[in-house]
Nucleic acid binder design. Structure first.
Lengths: 338, 338
DNA sequence: TTTATTTACGTAATCGTTACCGAAAACGAT
DNA sequence: ATCGTTTTCGGTAACGATTACGTAAATAAA
């Protein structure tokens, strides 16, 4: 707190504070020699401008916020890494807010960020079907915001996602080609854009491969693992048990593994499985898990890049844009021959 | 940016700015009724005090920083979640800085945080054996800092760790009790306190169980997975191959799984494995991985709590303290009978 | 030489809040 | 009725930086 201020620096240099300040901005309005003199002493005294004074005056914080539902999840962790790497390069600071899938919290965070704490926001939604008036407020106020992964489908915003529909299609087609006739689908019942798109891909693939649509095989899961586990258990014990399963979310696939273990079902003999997942250990599971792997790091990086180009341009509201970065299909044993 | 200010609020209320300000601090120096009036209009106009102006004036930022080596790692992700939960409860903001095991970055971050951006720091080191003069500077300047997991061993700081020595001991003892005679140990060669303590536990357990110490079985690994993989490969192909392995870090155990797969070695028949790990999928691996599971969330939470109690007390430098939260030994198949 | 222009610095206002202090008004005690 | 206290509010000066503007000196142009 008792750090050195620009005033003391100026006094030691026999300069005015404004001249010293100009040395730090790259103002043309200063003699290069005196600038050097200032910077030299600043370094010696370990002076840095007070960030809050600077932010107040400049009305810029050099700070961005990430708002997301969860962090103990390899996809989001990697996305954060991508975002942070760009921010670090640009000399920006990164605030992080976790909603834990709580829409009220999400709203509260956003409401707060209105008031100038950050220059921009990166966000992955907790639920795409909630009121989004607060988002529109954000845009009106001129706070740039970029969505990644979990986005609003019907809002003219900047979005970075993976090719969810195509990936859902490809996953389902793969199971069909492996000979599955009754392919189940696990998704989150929350109104998530990505879940819907993946499901749409699944449905299209069923149709294209002449497989009948059975609503019993499409399971809307929730945030509650216990509940999900019982849903999956019910599915796997039903008279017309599926022989293939496409999971939209990693944790649902893992629950399925547990359920199969408990029910003495063999993967892939009794049930072939493929899932969206960024698990590093997918190849090491028993059996190794076939995955649709999202380019999480790249998604984060791209989202951050879009935000920063906007910030550098001084743009207030970003023109709507959809960037898609493709996922990779990693076929492993869980969907393989036996 | 063109947000409403306290001045406009005051004008609308026919009050002075100072009175309005008092309504937001819980100053006794204000009539409860006028306070209500102020708060009501503030809510209506969606006014919040400008955080940077407030921070500048109060010399408090209500912000903390987390500095850590990595995030795409379940331990750190969970720790962050613990920290964030406490911060959210206290109404603090959380800045995040990733060092990627780069000591220079670590220093740079800390240097910057000197200058009043945050009220406190939570930190997990990149390497415990580097110069720590910058840390001492921090403490002198009166910026509270709490270390978790990766700490400086010989600095009088506040540290939150798990019982690394005992856990290393217990893991090794477990392998010995399973009949292993040649127990290898993988650790990170960086000068990490936790690695040293775990290794010390390993050495003590060897001694207590009458097992000879073989330096060939103690492998110092690095940050480079490729290099580590070849080290592990060499170990497993050496004439006197180990029959047990205690890994200090999750990723080293996973590399060992891969190496065993490649070398056609069976776990646990040819090699019993146990590792420090917070992998959610440990039970689902092939075979399921015996782990020492650190209470990551609790460690983060405790570290944050310690920091906040200090902040609330207005303490400048925290009295040195070591808090230990025990890990749990989860015995699974990788170290089991076959 | 005179005038115009550039260069390099200083003065002072400003960003939006909060804290110190003084003072009017209201209240109670004598 | 007088005097002291409490309550409640306002004025003003910070907090530490940035920046529009003014200005003297130095340089160039006429």
């Amino acid at each position: 707190m008792e750090g050195i201020t620009i005033k003391q620096l100026a006094k030691q240099l026999n300069l005015s504070v404004s001249t010293v300040s100009k040395a730090f901005q790259d103002s043309y309005d200063i003699n290069p020699q005196t600038r050097e003199r200032v910077l030299a002493l600043a370094k010696e005294l370990n002076y840095e401008p007070n960030p809050y004074a600077s932010s107040l005056r400049k009305q810029k914080s050099r700070t961005i916020a990430i708002i997301l539902p969860e962090i103990a999840n390899n996809f989001f962790a990697l996305a954060i890494r991508g975002i942070e790497s760009v921010a670090q390069e640009k000399g920006f600071h990164v605030l992080i807010y976790l909603t834990h899938e709580d829409h009220a919290k999400e709203m509260a965070f956003i409401q707060h960020l209105f008031h100038g704490r950050v220059d921009g926001v990166l966000m992955s939604l907790t639920d795409g079907n909630q009121a989004h008036s607060h988002i529109e407020q954000l845009q009106q106020k001129g706070l740039p915001i970029v969505f990644f992964d979990r986005i609003y489908e019907n809002l003219p915003t900047v979005n970075v996602t993976t090719n969810d529909f195509e990936s859902g299609y490809a996953a389902t087609r793969h199971l069909a080609q492996q000979g599955c006739r009754r392919i189940a689908h696990l998704y989150l019942s929350k109104n998530l854009s990505i879940a819907n798109r993946r499901k749409a891909g699944y449905l299209q693939a069923l149709k294209d491969h002449g497989l009948p649509l059975d609503e019993e095989l499409i399971i809307p899961c929730t945030d509650d693992p216990t509940h999900n586990y019982s849903l999956i258990g019910k599915l796997l014990q039903s008279p017309a048990r599926p022989d293939g399963l496409f999971s939209s979310f990693e944790k649902l696939a893992l629950l399925t593994y547990q359920a199969c273990e408990a029910l003495q079902l063999s993967i892939p003999r009794d049930l072939r499985i493929i899932s969206f997942s960024n698990l590093e250990t997918a190849p090491l599971l028993n059996p190794s898990l076939s995955t649709i792997t999202q380019p999480a790091f790249e998604i984060g990086k791209k989202a951050a890049s879009l935000l920063f180009t906007a910030l550098e341009k001084g743009v207030q509201s970003l023109p709507s844009e959809d960037v898609v970065i493709n996922s990779i299909l990693d076929i492993r044993n869980s969907s393989g021959r036996f």
